[in-house]
Simulated scan of single mutants.
Amino acid sequence: MNPNPQSAIPLYFQIEQDLASLIASGVLAPGSQIPSEEELVQKYGVSRTTVRKAVQELERLGLIEIRRGKGTFVRAAKLTQELTALTGFVEDMVAIGLQPSAKLLSKETVPATEEVARQLRLPIGTEVMQIRRVRMADDVAISLDETYLPLGLGRKVVENDLEVYPIFSLLEGKYDTPLLEADYRIEAVSADPAVAEALGIEEKAPILLIERVSYSLDQNPVDFEKLFYRGDKLRLTTRLQRRPSPIPLEALPRIASKGR
């Protein structure tokens, strides 16, 4: 497509629409890299300013993403995770045909904060093992996982290659710690500088914070995690059953009148 400078439609919008059409048709497939700024300037015969405006609009629409130091790529569809069973990241990614991997950022003994102590049912200040990893799917950063384990169990876990072995698999397959169920808390938050740097996103970008406490036998908490998921990469789904309403039909007018 050759942009028409005589048209009332701005040049950047003509280019934006052409690229959006290529994305919609699959010519530019999800995950593929779009031409560089210089290549787009040559292709469309316009200024860099015009190309940048078109690319910025495509990014604003969520059709592309800019990866620092790598280029600009067509945004893949969101990963869909069903909240119907206790599963780990590797299991979730394999189930949808993606290649999981991990980058270990740190593993260290730290004193339990009030939050960590409460979740693991330990006195505040008790030493626990903290493990921080970036979890990736097809080499794209998806989440930053911050895991806390009781110190005795944590010291065993960190002896393993945590870029290869999931913690769930080690707990169940090597350290005789079956995971039976978990509590989930999900909150929409903004990425702080540390999370943004780890995930390669902008500060204050929308992310999902999932706090998960996993329990073993006798309802003992053995694993507390703070999972920072990119908001543009994950969709959570579940199916809910309707329970009988505790509010009788005849009580509704009375309830409504109180709010006036």
Rank of each mutant, 00 (worst) to 15 (best):
I207F: 00
A198N: 04
E202R: 06
Q219G: 12
P221C: 04
E202F: 08
I201V: 08
R212F: 07
A194P: 03
E225G: 12
D192Y: 03
E225C: 10
Q219V: 11
L209A: 12
P193F: 02
S216L: 00
Q219T: 12
V213G: 11
D218K: 15
L217N: 05
N220A: 14
V195W: 11
E197Q: 10
E203N: 13
L227D: 12
S190F: 07
K226N: 07
A198V: 05
D192P: 06
D218P: 10
V222C: 14
S190T: 01
A198D: 08
V222R: 13
A196S: 05
R212V: 00
L217V: 14
L227T: 14
S216A: 02
F224I: 03
K204T: 15
E197M: 10
Q219A: 15
L209F: 04
L208V: 13
P221D: 03
K204N: 15
E225D: 10
A194V: 07
I201P: 01
I210G: 11
A205I: 12
S214V: 05
F224C: 05
R212Q: 06
E202Y: 03
G200L: 09
L208Q: 06
G200S: 08
A205Y: 04
R212P: 06
P221E: 09
F224R: 01
S216H: 00
K204V: 13
E203G: 07
I207G: 00
E197A: 11
I207K: 00
E211D: 12
E197F: 06
S216W: 00
S190W: 02
L199Q: 08
E197D: 13
Q219C: 10
K226I: 05
A191T: 02
K204M: 12
P221G: 05
A198S: 05
L227G: 10
F224D: 05
A196P: 03
V213M: 14
E197L: 08
E211L: 11
E203T: 08
E203C: 06
Q219F: 15
E202Q: 13
K204H: 15
E203R: 10
S214F: 06
V213H: 12
D192A: 01
N220Y: 05
L227R: 13
I207C: 00
E197P: 07
R212H: 02
